[in-house]
Amino acid sequence: MPDGVAIRAQDLQKQFRAVSAVRGVSFEVRAGEIFSLLGPNGAGKSTTIAMLSCLLPPTQGDASVCGHSIRQSPQRVKACLGVVPQDIALYLDLSARENLEFWGKMYGLRGTALRQRVAEVLEIIGLTERQKDTVGTFSGGMKRRVNIGAALLHRPDVIIMDEPTVGIDPQSRRHILDNVKELNRQGMTILYTTHYMEEAQELSHQIAIMDQGKVIACGTHAELIRLVGERTRLDLTLDAEVDALVAYWRSMAGVHSLSADHGRLTLLVDDSNLVLPRLFETASPFGVRITSVTIEEPNLEAVFLHLTGKALRDEP
């Protein structure tokens, strides 16, 4: 891989008629890294990786994968890339083995090499025992595992995973996250998109936070946390949301930022020991009761809140 960079995106843009889905995204993924694109739904993550996978042509900008331009050499990019789509993209009336054999052939594998690799991948995804069962009979988590396995068959240098843990049980989620780490240990570069902060935090060497089609911050976990300093995050639930109280708290000393959503408030504060008692004191005169409090040390959620003024869970 030239200069040790697996993926280099340069000012990628995608316009769908009047909608700008991606607005000048640039980042670099070094070979052997797990790189996460973190952001809420609609942030532009899937459109970005669709362009990197050569499924959508960029309106502007370019990117290289394994040194090949997505504009100039899409077939070469596809050959070194394994793509795990967000939705299950498998033939439900075929068995797990038949699916893997089919996708292996699409990556150019044949004969003994194909059979051996299918057996290895079945082992990796933990479905050797169920290989002859039709995928339509599998649970959501098992389908997700086959969905990932189909992208591993040709031993790609780079794997792109688009929210591979959406809508599955905790056990399958754990299995997938462990698989991702294992694949990375074997030397694969992984571009991982998610809107789950904990996943990005656990897996990633580098994280790019996206919002409204742009990368708003990029760096290691530690680097991103430093953006919010030592601020603590408070999640409050109120029995009623009073605009005047929210406005008062927003201007209160020690409160760095505040987002409110139907009685659920998220605040970034300098010192929770000082701020919290004052929140209780000032709520009563407004006739509002605080019904629950959660205190969290600085994390990516806080970073997102700090950078956008809204919580990661908020809809765009």
Binding site: L55, A89, Y107
Partner: peptide, 14 residues
């Protein structure tokens, strides 16, 4: 609709 056509297009298959 099932996404398999897009997946096919993501492989080196013209």
């Amino acid at each position: 609709e099932q996404g398999t056509l897009a997946r096919l297009s993501s492989t080196p298959t013209p």
